[in-house]
């Protein structure tokens, strides 16, 4: 286990803005590093002083409990100074606020900014205006790279690898940054990706991202190794994209009947928070033999520790903040 981040391994990017464009080696560097933190997080003393003296700012333009807490824990366990900033986006012109905020924060010399924003591309825009490392904590419907990494780590630990696995991602693909990051990561690592959803929740042209599209759960889940369910936002349910919760659950909610079409030992995943009885049946979600949903949360902290460490202590950029 590595006690020192400044050894031979380093991640050759200033920021982590998305999975798209990362090579298999770069993804493996992140996952291997994350692996080392899983054990640390299970010890009584979970803290190492690797990031002592470094400043991390959680800058969230959108409500979040899980991701923000996960980053917060990760930063504190590495001994960094971490503060949370939540910024309301409503009133003022968003572009101006975003860049003004970035400039203000930049003047305080942080080492890492973790940013979540409701607009796709906003995190990248912000990264161009600051001198520190930026981690995308989720931008609009674009990317959520640490989620895809924690999903990959969970799968890898359970299945020994990603290559050759058949993964179904089910639900609201149109609005999901989790789906997009996972599609990039899984394809890069040699897994095969299927998407299953009603047509209204499948964005046009997605086949070009290297996925197979299905509109029937039984068909789409056939022989899958991994079943990833996505959270369905309530506001999609009011008759715009879907008629009703009961219809959605009837045709696309994961229950044992539909799950029976996947491989017998298929893993069930969900980025949380779950809508029980909407996209997933309670019994399936709580099935200790199949569901790795809680493990995903655990892996999330390890992945974020690895990402924070590798970006904050990147020898190529150190001291340039």
């Amino acid at each position: 286990m590595k006690q020192d981040g400044k050894d031979n391994v380093h991640f050759p990017h200033r920021h982590l803005l998305g999975i798209e464009g990362l090579s298999p080696t770069e993804i493996s560097i992140l996952l291997d590093r994350s692996e080392s933190y899983v054990d640390q997080n299970r010890r009584a003393n979970k803290t190492t002083p690797l990031l002592h003296g470094r400043t991390i700012i959680n800058l969230f333009f959108e409500d979040s409990t899980r991701t923000r807490t996960s980053f917060e824990l990760a930063g504190k366990r590495l001994g960094g100074d971490l503060i949370n900033m939540s910024v309301a986006t409503s009133s003022v012109k968003k572009g101006e606020t975003l860049i003004d905020t970035a400039m203000t924060l930049n003047a305080m010399h942080p080492d890492v900014l973790v940013v979540r924003h409701p607009d796709s591309g906003a995190v990248k825009l912000l990264s161009e205006k600051v001198n520190c490392a930026v981690i995308n904590g989720g931008d609009g419907s674009h990317e959520h790279p640490t989620q895809a990494l924690l999903d990959a780590l969970t799968i890898r630990r359970r299945r020994g690898g990603l290559s050759g696995l058949l993964v179904a991602i089910c639900g609201d693909i149109t609005h999901s940054r989790v789906a997009r990051s996972n599609i990039h990561l899984l394809n890069t690592m040699g897994a095969r990706v299927r998407l299953i959803a009603p047509r209204t929740l499948i964005p046009s042209g997605i086949e070009r991202m290297g996925v197979e599209v299905f509109h029937d759960m039984a068909e789409g889940l056939r022989d899958c190794d991994i079943v990833m369910m996505l959270r369905l936002q309530r506001e999609r349910m009011d008759g715009n994209f879907l008629p009703s919760i009961r219809e959605y659950f009837h045709f696309f909610g994961l229950d044992y009947e539909k799950l029976s079409h996947a491989k017998e030992d298929a893993l069930i995943m969900h980025p949380g928070p779950m809508n029980r009885g909407v996209e997933i049946d309670t019994d399936v979600a709580d099935d200790v033999g199949r569901s790795v949903i809680r493990e995903q949360v655990e892996m999330g902290v390890a992945v974020r520790m690895a990402v924070l460490e590798l970006l904050a202590l990147n020898p190529e950029y150190e001291g340039k903040g």
Partner: peptide, 9 residues
């Protein structure tokens, strides 16, 4: 003419 009915069901 506003919200989809439960076509599948």
């Amino acid at each position: 003419g506003k919200e989809l009915a439960e076509l599948g069901l």
